[in-house]
Design a protein around this nucleic acid. Sequence first.
DNA 1: CTGAAAGCGCTTACAG
DNA 2: CTGAAAGCGCTTACAG
Lengths: 358, 358
Amino acid sequence: MSLRARATVLDIARQAGVSRATVSLVLRGSDRIKPETADKVRQAMKEVGYVYNRAAANLRSARTNFVGMVMSDLKNPFFSELAVGIEDSLYRLGLTPILANTNDDLARQRQVLQSMLEYGVLGVILSPARATDAGHLALPPTAPPVILAMRKIDGCDLPYVGQDNASGARKAAEHLVALGHTRIAFFGGDPAITTQQERYRGYCEALRAAGLPLLPDLLFETDVTRDGGGEAMERAMASAAKPTAAVCYNDLIAIGATRALAMRGLKAGEDFAIVGFDNLSEAKDNFPPLTTIDAETMAMGDRAAQILIGLIDGPARSTATAVTGGSRLVVRDSCGARLTGRSGAVSNRVSSRASLTG
Amino acid sequence: MSLRARATVLDIARQAGVSRATVSLVLRGSDRIKPETADKVRQAMKEVGYVYNRAAANLRSARTNFVGMVMSDLKNPFFSELAVGIEDSLYRLGLTPILANTNDDLARQRQVLQSMLEYGVLGVILSPARATDAGHLALPPTAPPVILAMRKIDGCDLPYVGQDNASGARKAAEHLVALGHTRIAFFGGDPAITTQQERYRGYCEALRAAGLPLLPDLLFETDVTRDGGGEAMERAMASAAKPTAAVCYNDLIAIGATRALAMRGLKAGEDFAIVGFDNLSEAKDNFPPLTTIDAETMAMGDRAAQILIGLIDGPARSTATAVTGGSRLVVRDSCGARLTGRSGAVSNRVSSRASLTG
DNA sequence: CTGAAAGCGCTTACAG
DNA sequence: CTGAAAGCGCTTACAG
């Protein structure tokens, strides 16, 4: 539409009395142009109301500035924080993100990936939709690099950036063990996703190391939502295993669990110890504030962008890079440590506590 | 980079033994091509591993499929829900969103808008950064349509899509009046933003209609965050005005307020009545579940996309469209209505309640 | 330091 | 129904 009405380099060239090539050099800030000429050109640009046509430039130079950002579920605050981290980093690198939210829909993921290839993206940062397998990610040989964010795919050797899930969950469970708990549940997510597998493995390692039995009825799988967390807590309270603490797959589940306690007039950190995973910005604002593993989500987004740049500029398509981070324990109130001190067990209804911290 | 290695329409044409024009027609699904020829071309596309080059097509046809999505704060769940709504709608329309998160930074907003013009976006959906004025949105005459989402700008006649803020806040306050409250606070946001002004106005209208005095010390401005809500509640509890209820600028503030109550061993809906605004997906998962105004955020995103399409395809750049919606009261537990019935006042420490609802 | 020519990969009239 | 030619708005060698 309005594209056609726009002034072109030729209009600038005529206005300034120079050639198109000269204008092009000025546009890209070349130092091969005499300052006066450059000024004359810039003046002409203003006069004709020039707007750079990046599509044309990209076509000629066979290079775009696009990077695909494919998120599996942007409504989940974890992924929106990740997206913000990626967007911010790409922006600083002078790259332009094309966004797609697949909603964990495989067909949509396939379509948006195809579309991004057609746009000539320099690369893609992809948090794969649930049920993605290696076959879905088999791309044409000319395809740009793709980085998996947060979820690995079996049999797929694409570079991966994510938290150190096993280590984080292990620290969470160790913390609860140190507080004296012996019946520690795992409120988990989708067993088909590597993130769940790794976090559950970390939890198991901690229990094993502590000499605690790994009871299958301490695992409560549930939806990865606040509702799911509440539901897991209800089941846990009604179960024969009678856990006194839980490592949660993520903060959403942990928040739902604290809420289910509150519904019963109970309180996380007093009547039941809870540790989450992710350190969402709402974790510190929960009541009680959530003890959790800091996934450094924004920083992970930044890492993903940095890795991608490396692959784009780098010599060959490198194989199997795995960058992990984010497994620091952040102690707040939902685990009870602040009530009892590091080593004591959580007792019921300790006297009221005071300050919260971010 | 890899762009150059890709097969082109000419490669397909040679492979299929037809001309480039024929290939182009097949690519766009024209019915002017004999079925056998089309099949032959499609076969050739596969053989040469063709990937459509959308940038080239756009250049020639002087039309892109890009739409700019400029969000002021994607970390705020309200805006991420809005973004999901917009993205989903654009996707269905065959359009490709270019994302930018300005973080309420004016300089960044200016840059991304410029960049989007250079990419030839068909239009932009913009939730303006704080402190944006009409001058910041003065675009070149050839610029595509821009729609303001959620925030109006004084002196700027761009089309606007947003909630009916005054009406929603009025309903919220009327609800609290009907429950018997006479000292109703407003926990508000940034007074420079029209959304705040409109919501505060709606609140004032309800109080005036009920014959209640509009006390300036019932207005507690605060950060539009969970922390801000907690802080407003602390100030309200310590104030001479001693409110018994609050209309909150949004759910984040309302959630923070319920949490501040919980920190004191008090409970929203029993000791203090709270109504939020937005109906974030976490509103129903709050403890207690939040009474709020449903902003129909996803639907608003869809509306914004629809309006934009109308302007793109429409005859002339239409002026000043204002589409509003989203002001339905959703009664849950934080207001106390379920405890006392619609007409009674909230008393202290009513007997324990039961079920929650989404 | 600047200019004239060619071409990126498509689509668009225009023929036939 | 299909082909040969021109051109979208840039950048890229290549001259000078």
